[in-house]
Simulated scan of single mutants.
Amino acid sequence: MRFVDDLYSLYREHLEDEENAVSVVLNILEDQNREDIMKLIEEMDDEEVVQMVGVYLVEMLKMKMSQEGQLSDWESPLKRPRYH
């Protein structure tokens, strides 16, 4: 996806680990509205959309399993501390 490639090019120096990647993404999304996000999705090909929804569904299932006590070691990357 072009957007991911652009993000990576801009922030590659700051992407030392998963926590940094989550922070970058959350900071970028903070400045976007629904219309901006929908434009990004519309630019994706079908495979990218399916992959995005698949990752989302897996993470949501893992969160639900954790809430139900079925997955004790899962932590949402979205709930980690954010660094600006």
Rank of each mutant, 00 (worst) to 15 (best):
Q51R: 11
S72E: 13
V50N: 05
D45T: 02
E59P: 01
E43A: 15
E30T: 09
L15I: 12
Q32I: 03
K79E: 08
E47V: 13
V55D: 06
R82E: 07
W74N: 10
R34L: 12
M52W: 00
Q70L: 13
N20L: 01
E59C: 05
D6Q: 15
E47D: 09
V53S: 03
E48Y: 01
L7T: 08
L15M: 15
S23Q: 04
D17C: 14
M44W: 00
K79M: 15
L7I: 15
R2W: 11
N20M: 06
S9R: 10
D46R: 12
E75I: 01
S66W: 00
V55N: 02
K79P: 03
K39C: 03
G54N: 04
D5G: 13
F3N: 10
E18N: 08
Y11V: 04
L71H: 04
K64D: 14
Q70F: 11
V50Y: 07
V55Q: 04
E68N: 08
M38F: 15
V50E: 12
D36H: 14
M38D: 13
D46Y: 06
R2C: 04
M44R: 01
I28N: 06
R80V: 14
H14A: 06
K79C: 08
E16A: 09
M60V: 13
L26I: 03
M52Q: 00
E19I: 07
E30L: 09
A21M: 12
E48K: 00
M52C: 02
E42D: 14
D5T: 12
K39R: 12
D31I: 00
E42K: 12
K79R: 14
